[in-house]
């Protein structure tokens, strides 16, 4: 039963990858330490060489627009959303 609930929750999660202008490990740290605590964010991975931010989120609590604003608020440009 617990497994089913977990699977159902996972099914409800969406994910998005932002291509940004981050360029170093400190940029990654800034995003990790801030965006990770945005409402609805379930997982986050920052890839510096590819300049991407992958976010898994609960679509009932947040959306791509809100997450884009959270990244831009930190001073980074969101160049593309995948």
């Amino acid at each position: 039963m617990k497994l089913l609930i977990t699977l159902a929750l996972l099914a409800a999660f969406s994910h998005v990858t932002f291509v940004t202008d981050i360029h170093c490990q400190k940029c990654a740290q800034k995003i990790e330490e801030n965006v990770a605590f945005e409402k609805g964010v379930k997982d986050l991975k920052v890839n510096v060489p590819e300049k991407t931010v992958y976010i898994q989120y609960d679509s009932t609590k947040t959306n791509v627009s809100t997450l884009t604003k959270a990244i831009e608020k930190l001073g980074y440009k969101v160049i593309e959303t995948k």
Partner: peptide
């Protein structure tokens, strides 16, 4: 180096 063309990003590793 933000917004500079001489960014060190290529030399940085995770």
């Amino acid at each position: 180096y933000r917004d500079r063309t001489d960014s060190l990003s290529e030399a940085l590793t995770v």
